[in-house]
Design a protein around this nucleic acid. Structure first.
Lengths: 132, 132, 132, 132
DNA sequence: GTGGTCTAGACCACT
DNA sequence: GTGGTCTAGACCACA
């Protein structure tokens, strides 16, 4: 399967599901138009309450990541661009803040951190290209 | 004050406090040895129950960010290094993962993302240097 | 029940709970995977506020003794080994120090103390084996 | 000095003082009849509130470890035996309990633990003999 | 005055 | 029903 669920984690299971799907789409493991397993199918495979799965799918649909076609099933949606360049930058910068605080406690210096970031980003995009 | 508390946020108040303090220390707004406001003092200022503050302080102490001297108050601790270079790298890479997924939904390309990251990191360290 | 709470003791109730659970697990009265009573259930039985129980459970989880599965309850965790042989030895020696001081005030001689220690240890392990 | 005070410890300072004195007497560093520094002397040497020191001395006197002779100072008392053999055994066994629980979490086996105990006890008494 | 503990009671998120 | 969070208010030990 394209995700890991850890019932021991402090992150709610439905949220782990959401991140799992979003991650898989981002990495190209799931592609637009592809069919997702139905709520019941999933609930059978991973032993999780189907309400939990339904909640995750609902949220994913609300975010526009997936679409449900009545009677046909659930599918990965086409992606739509919504934010401007400046807005996107702000989103990323916001997420970066927490990492910078953590980097401080790890006593990472500016150059060291930049190196790690560049390496990781390049690796991620490389894997993604290979996937597609 | 060196932090913002949003009682409407889904993040628990005590955790917002924790992040606030950690951030302030990372940025140099709070320096080792400095005294933090007493539990009840802070509770009065930001109109939050003192137990909530106490919980945050206790967690911060457990993480080694602050120290409490019995009967005297709470202070920012000296920092200690614990993880190896390789371990620190793994921590950062783990935190980066989520950002990369988000970047995908923002349809940011590799070079664009790297640019934003570099800019943000440089800016953060610059501010930090000025603070100190 | 597998522990005693003495509200008159100078040891905080939540800590007595922690030691009680740790002891019960060590003795085999509680076994990995077993469900602990819910916070409110236990609070009712031993007429102690549920917050106090929750605090104990949280600390036990932090120490890795128990696990909470969201919405399902709290369970005794599988045990994991962490410290090296040498480190474990140091921990034990540290705890022994206080006992040695006490033995001095009891004017116990070397051989007498060793006898008592051996007898107690053998007894403890015997009981534990029978429990399992 | 014959003891260490750590204001960061969760153990109250006055209690650290008590244990320090008791330990020094047990190890033979302080011998019966020897004069202890006065409250004020001590308060000067280690920067600690003299009320805290007075409290420790009071408790030590209550336990019969030290004696104050009015106007002359404070001295290490002669030791008196109070408990029967069986009672002493019970005291030791009680203190051992906690160590046995800890040993379980360290996954120490019976023989390994006994070895460590014997080694530590022999070492302690050897040092004590040399001290005297 | 400082933090630590505890109670009683409420509300919320998760399964 | 499960644990998690929060408030209001009380008492205690420590320095």
């Amino acid at each position: 399967m394209w995700f890991n669920i850890d019932p021991r984690s402090s992150m709610p299971i439905y949220q782990q599901l959401i991140e799992g799907v979003k991650g898989a789409v981002a990495k190209g493991t799931l592609t637009p138009g592809e069919k997702l397993p139905s709520v019941r199918e999933l609930a059978g495979q991973i032993t999780i309450n189907h309400n939990t799965i339904a909640k995750a799918y609902q949220e994913l649909e609300r975010e526009g990541i997936i679409e449900t076609l009545r009677g046909r099933g659930t599918f990965v949606a086409e992606q739509r661009m919504t934010l401007s360049r400046e807005e996107r930058k702000q989103v990323i910068k916001g997420m970066l803040e927490r990492m910078l605080v953590e980097a401080h406690y790890l006593q990472l210096e500016e150059e060291e951190l930049l190196e790690i970031l560049e390496e990781s980003v390049r690796e991620w995009y490389r894997e993604r290209r290979e996937q597609t």
